[in-house]
Design a protein around this nucleic acid. Structure first.
Lengths: 204, 204
DNA sequence: ACCAATACGTACCGATCGGTAACATTGTCA
DNA sequence: TGACAATGTTACCGATCGGTACGTATTGGT
């Protein structure tokens, strides 16, 4: 594989103030871990692509596992930005909020190279209950479940917990099937299916 | 971790004819790969737990990647056994067939130590398009999608492909959220949600 | 009883894994 | 100018990775 050290300024910071080593490392780790998986990427590859040296990595991160956890904490922030963006687009209308979020997931899932949710993937890679990366993932998913159930309640679902969980199943299914099938896969219809499920779950 | 070499006769074959090395290896690989992930398990651990030696492994399997593919081919067989069992339980009633399959998935997903679908997990671990393990997984999922769409059509869905894909999303979501949340997670309601989705997707 | 084929074990390979020790260099601010 | 923090340089560590060369048991057939 050809290895240009880097071109992307979000990695090198060649515009304005140069990025600190820790930031370059985290930018590269985010990219590589997401696209190829955490276990598949060694620390040597991270530091090489970041244009830094291994001691720099271990000055900023106590271990590779903690670097993975840091990557996921950042992923978590970006996730909630996307989620809250969809929420803010439809104030007071949880049904429209969910559907907006899902249609954006569906859209992104059709792009080649889409690898689903970085946190879901990390949980698959690390089944050990105490792994730092897994703990970040589990927290994110618990919060997502909580919010989906609350939104289902606000919609007036007969069984809010059941609908919230159903929506979570559809979302996780979309993440996974996107990387299983690539563009044209089942995740493109996640919003339409959610719409049907919501319609069938409301009172009266 | 304590490492008794093995007790399970399905691994050692201490009943009747002793198992061949290749069978012991595949039994152990199936267990370890499923529970801890393929990348997490080295060939040394496989042969040690199988009570054989490394050359025995490489006489029967050309590489670790091919051993992983063999594990998944066996998983594939067992998967269709379970699927066809649910189908056979409700002849001519695709709706009941799906629901039977899903309620069994839901039930298994509540057991501690459940790790979802071995093939879904393998696809997450190996994003490279040509990896032998991934190819087995993709074939399985394509066939599953085909069958779900056909069953949706047989149910009389307005849009059979859409319903079939929706069911696939729910199934994959159940597999993943089972290992994210453990017992008590959203996958316990996969059958009920599928029931609602089917009801909302039928004609007239 | 013998032999060939099959099945298996001992010992080892280079490469890579995550991680570190010791020291040199740079840029910044006072 | 001097002190300090951040980073780079080089070389290394033991452990584990996937994989193999080569010799030894064991087995079934005649």
């Amino acid at each position: 594989m050809t290895e240009d050290k880097n071109i992307d300024p979000s990695i090198s910071g060649q515009n304005e103030t140069p990025l600190r080593a820790a930031d370059k490392i985290l930018n590269v780790a985010r990219d590589l871990f997401y696209r190829q998986g955490i276990r598949a990427i060694g620390v040597d590859e991270v530091v090489r692509k970041a244009g830094v040296t291994k001691p720099s990595l271990y000055r900023s991160f106590p271990s590779k596992d903690e670097l993975a956890a840091s990557y996921l904490r950042r992923y978590d922030e970006e996730f909630w930005e996307r989620f809250d963006e969809a929420v803010a687009a439809h104030p007071g209308d949880p049904r429209a909020q969910i559907l907006a979020f899902l249609s954006r997931v569906a859209k992104r899932s059709q792009k080649p190279g889409y690898r689903g949710c970085g946190m879901t993937n990390a949980a698959v890679e690390y089944p050990e209950p105490e792994h730092p990366a897994r703990l970040v993932s589990e927290d994110n998913k618990k919060e997502l479940r909580r919010r989906l159930r609350a939104m289902a309640a606000a919609m007036g679902a007969r069984d809010a917990d059941e609908l919230g969980d159903g929506l979570l199943l559809l979302i996780e299914g979309a993440y996974i099937s996107a990387q299983l099938f690539g563009p044209g896969g089942p995740s493109q219809s996640v919003a339409k299916n959610a719409e049907l499920l919501i319609g069938a779950s409301l009172k009266g």
